[in-house]
């Protein structure tokens, strides 16, 4: 069933978006049936912007990130849609073309660097790999140059350059994550996809890493697609946030708007699930029930069984599409029909 084509965010009308995801569908077969891990997900990411993709476990945010960078593991496969990176559909590239943009233009920071680094190779080797895999023809770097660049990168992320000969297990968790970030920066990409980069780290180390990333962004001006389940972190760090639920994008807005003025009932309830350190102590309730089974999702709006303001009838039969409901603010909910603005009005 096709959804009405969402009107795209015209935030920076001067430039085309760097990344444009359109109707992305990711599926995989299980013994019990077909799972739609991502269902017609569409959003734009602009140059020099941090776009956060938030949601709970199983919502599909990691799936979307993996699909965009084409590192989905079987049995998951892309069943439809486009991922336009600088106007080129990444999903249609062959292996060679893919290798070309991989790391040079889009790189990835994985969750829990513990496992993202091979334990038997030095940190320097793993940085050098990224550098050497992409030299074709023009100015081959000598070993010396590669090593120097590796040391430079370590320095950039706040690690003593002499650690270039260390093995991953000799570094602390925070340092390992910095190494992974250094590798991601190696070829000066335009977009870095960060999949839960600080989830496995303590809160103080997390702050150090996020500050470091901010600094590097100021220096190099890359965009970030930031995946996390930690909404507080997300809102603090991102320019715009997209909330996912059960494989669908249900709300997209600038981060302060998501925090101060959430529109979708799921987002509203979600924001009500985080205890805060400042402000008054209010009673929080969370959301009753659990996320739906993606093999047989509820008909109509996927959130309606847990929604306290669902409309009898429409919410149970008709799936809402992502519509613009304000300046740079989109949501997928029937109750917001009266707020829908036309593309021309939202400037």
């Amino acid at each position: 069933m096709t959804q009405p084509m969402p009107t795209f965010d015209q935030a920076r009308t001067d430039a085309e978006p760097l990344l444009s995801v359109r109707d992305l569908v990711v599926e995989y077969h299980t013994q019990r049936g077909l799972v739609r891990a991502a269902d017609h997900v569409s959003f734009d990411l602009h140059r020099n912007e941090v776009f956060g993709l938030a949601g709970e476990s199983g919502c599909g945010k990691s799936t979307v990130a993996h699909a965009i960078t084409r590192i989905l593991k079987p049995p998951a496969h892309i069943a439809g849609g486009q991922v336009l990176f600088d106007e080129v559909d990444v999903l249609k590239l062959n292996d060679d073309q893919l290798r070309d943009i991989r790391w040079r233009r889009i790189s990835i920071v994985f969750q829990s660097a513990m496992n993202a680094l091979s334990p038997v190779l030095t940190v320097g080797t793993q940085i050098a790999d990224a550098l050497q895999a992409h030299e074709n023809g023009t100015a081959q770097m000598t070993r010396r140059q590669v090593l120097d660049r590796a040391r430079e990168l370590l320095d950039l992320v706040g690690i003593d350059p002499d650690r270039v000969n260390s093995y991953p297990h000799q570094l602390s968790g925070g340092m390992r994550q910095r190494v992974v970030i250094a590798i991601a920066l190696a070829l000066n990409p335009e977009l870095i996809v960060m999949d839960e980069p600080t989830t496995a780290l303590d809160v103080v180390v997390q702050k150090q890493i996020m500050d470091q990333i901010r600094e590097l962004r100021n220096q190099f001006g890359f965009s970030i697609l930031f995946i996390s389940h930690d909404l507080s972190l997300m809102v603090e760090f991102s320019d715009r946030v997209g909330i996912m639920y059960a494989g669908e994008l249900v709300e997209v807005a600038p981060s302060q708007a998501i925090f101060n003025d959430p529109q979708h009932p799921y987002t509203v309830r979600l924001m009500n699930s985080f205890p805060t350190l400042s402000g008054p102590r209010v009673e929080l309730f969370g959301i009753p029930g659990s996320p739906p089974d993606l093999i047989t999702p509820p008909p109509g709006c996927r959130f309606h069984p847990r929604c306290d303001v669902a409309l009898a009838g429409r919410c149970q039969t008709e799936r809402p599409g992502l519509q613009p409901i304000g300046a740079r603010h989109m949501a997928a909910c029937h109750l917001l029909d009266d707020k829908i603005v036309n593309k021309e009005d939202a400037s």
């Binding site: 103080v204 997390q206 996020m210 507080s232 972190l233 603090e236 760090f237 981060s255 925090f259 402000g279």
Partner: peptide, 8 residues
Amino acid sequence: LSAVPDPA
């Protein structure tokens, strides 16, 4: 306390 993300 200063390290905890707090959008408020």
